[in-house]
Design a protein around this nucleic acid. Sequence first.
DNA 1: GTGTTTGCAAACTTTTTGCAAACAC
DNA 2: GTGTTTGCAAAAAGTTTGCAAACAC
Lengths: 141, 141
Amino acid sequence: MAVQRRNTHQRQLVLNAVLARNDHPSAEDIYLDVRNIEATISRGTVYRNLNLLEESGLISSVHVPGGNRFDWRLDNHAHAVCTSCGMLVDAPMSYSTQDDCAAEASTGFQIMSHTTVYTGLCPRCQTAQTELDGDSSTCSI
Amino acid sequence: MAVQRRNTHQRQLVLNAVLARNDHPSAEDIYLDVRNIEATISRGTVYRNLNLLEESGLISSVHVPGGNRFDWRLDNHAHAVCTSCGMLVDAPMSYSTQDDCAAEASTGFQIMSHTTVYTGLCPRCQTAQTELDGDSSTCSI
DNA sequence: GTGTTTGCAAACTTTTTGCAAACAC
DNA sequence: GTGTTTGCAAAAAGTTTGCAAACAC
């Protein structure tokens, strides 16, 4: 039997904070946001609620270097992360559940889903980098 | 100018330890392996060398929940990770650099590569799980 | 009233770093 | 000899957890 979940003020604030952001915030980001509304909330509560909300399927998360990042989107979609500043954006690439089945067949794992993370430089860090190194794009247009 | 790299005994041992394993070891795994040969090596040295070897393009790594895992394979390939025990295996799925260019076009990032991680239960944990819950595969055959 | 949740603090895991001594070149 | 690398220890970053008080139902 599933554990009974209660609607606490803090839980609602954490959920609202995730829903209010489009930039894939970290747990710390959410903690800081919620603390502006409820000054006495603790990091522990934020972490616990982020995990519970994800288990409940109300939010999702992406694991990238630097920590877990949260997302109000529930559909499977890819992300791009900047190696320089950590900026994380949605990458509108197609998601195929057939890939999951193919991976299931080839690995013997029972695959639930997959996540694709594109790694590179965000526009701002590209500019900063280009001024030092020159352009090094790998994709011709 | 690039930094001059020296061939130290410890660096060679760390590289050899990665090359010797097929199970995508963690930094701690490598530390323990190398310590069997060079008892006085420190974790700091292992971490530093794993990072340097990756920068040098001699090894690669996969970032998964639980930490960084290392791989002697240098070609881009997908992985499957077990949510229960953390087992990490290669997933022989096709890798398309065209996806990188598509993501570059849609995000504005300068994409270097992408990593795909399939998430699910490894065969062993499936068996353990099925005994409790019954089969819950999502892929029909 | 019962059982979940909170805030706090401590602990934990993984990784990085400052420093003086040791080493590679 | 010069500059990199090492071992050590401390610290950092991110996250989890034990506990008693507070709260939701």
